[in-house]
Amino acid sequence: MNVPYFDLKGQTQSIRGELDRAIAEQLDNGSFCLGPAVDAFEKAFAAYTGAKYSLGFNSGTSALHVATRILNLGPGDEVITTPFTFVATSWAIVYTNAKPVYVDIDPATMNLDPAKIEAAITPRTKAIMPVHLYGHPVDLDPILQICAKHKLALIEDAAQAHGAKYKGKPVGTFGAMSGFSFYPGKNLGACGEGGALVTNDDAIYKRAKALREHGSYERYYHDEIGYNYRMEGIQGAALGVKLKRLPAWTARRRELAHRYHALLKGTPLTLPVEAAYGESVYHLYVVRHTKRDALREYLTKNGIGCALHYPLPCHLQKCFASLGHKVGDFPVAERSAKECLSLPIYPEMTNEQQDAVAAAIKAFFATPAAA
């Protein structure tokens, strides 16, 4: 049985009629940039996260960039973050000419390790930006304590964690602000690009709203340098349709993750863990093994989709060579990058498809390539 890594077409078809109607309404009323559908989605997503405000953006990267702008970061400032995530987290920092300061990750959750943060703090540190990687919450309480002790801002990168919970409370509401991504492959994905900045702070909301729209609090009057980071009306409409399904989709992802736990128990793979403090939404189901590349090749040849998240940590990316990092600086992140493999997991996946994935993995470990 062939099993795709992701089935976005299947998800779209399952709600095609409602999507068509919602998008047609935008075509009919001409609300292509922001507008009523975006307003409605912003209110609904704020309620979903338990926040006071949600602002729609053209991407999660843009939302995080505006978050760093609101902190008035500039040359010489530093933001502590993880080297093991998608590069957009670091983009948000360097776009302000500040410096990302990396801290190694926890070997169990692969999230930023709170125990290693304080050693990286300098007089130039202005904020901490952890990532809820793969949909699993980072351990926030110790990070919040560090922020309070050193008077640092906390920005949550929740791009992969729509609906994830830390000690029973949705992520994205613990820091001054957070950024979410609605890239099509996310648990809540637009029909194109999209993102959101979430906050409980009135002043942050007002400034973020202005920065999103050319630095303007009043049309054609520009108080500061801003951006064209507005969400499209069609994306707001599509996200409004999908948000209503997100709780059910999340429940199915968690069901599939627990089935993987059972199906793959006893194999040589290191399986994902769910810390006692968190509830993961399993944006990705990432296993680890020293024979990762051979396993990936075997699965691909046998019709099983899989992917790498992420094959090269940020500190070793060519674009960040000026930071002066070298192999060995963050060994846990580097080892994870060599061993991680993302298996198919999405709400439309059938039990039979998942059984086929597990069977193929077990078959691989019976081959000489796994020795």
Rank of each mutant, 00 (worst) to 15 (best):
A276I: 07
Q317N: 08
A275I: 06
I304W: 00
T267M: 05
H283T: 12
C319R: 12
R335P: 00
K291D: 07
Y298T: 02
E279G: 07
L316Q: 09
H315G: 06
P313L: 11
R292I: 02
Y310C: 03
S280K: 06
F330S: 02
Q317Y: 07
K318N: 06
V287M: 07
C319K: 15
H315P: 05
D293G: 08
E334F: 00
P272G: 09
V287D: 04
G278N: 09
Y282S: 02
G303M: 04
V286E: 15
T267S: 14
S322L: 01
H325G: 14
A307G: 06
G278H: 08
T300R: 07
V281I: 13
G303E: 07
K318C: 08
Y298I: 00
P311T: 09
R288T: 08
T270Q: 12
L323C: 13
C319G: 11
N302L: 01
D293V: 14
S322K: 09
I304A: 11
F330R: 00
E297D: 05
R292V: 04
L299S: 01
V273P: 01
I304L: 11
E274Q: 13
L299K: 01
T267P: 08
H283F: 09
V273E: 12
L316A: 12
R296I: 02
D329G: 01
L269T: 01
S280M: 05
Y310L: 15
G305E: 02
N302S: 09
F320W: 03
V287K: 06
Y310P: 13
Y298C: 00
E274Y: 06
R288P: 06
H325T: 09
L284P: 06
H289A: 11
I304F: 07
Y285L: 14
Y285H: 11
L269M: 15
E274T: 12
L271F: 10
H315E: 12
H315N: 12
E297A: 11
C306G: 05
H315A: 07
C314I: 14
T270R: 15
C306Q: 10
L323G: 06
G324R: 04
E274M: 10
P268H: 10
A307Q: 14
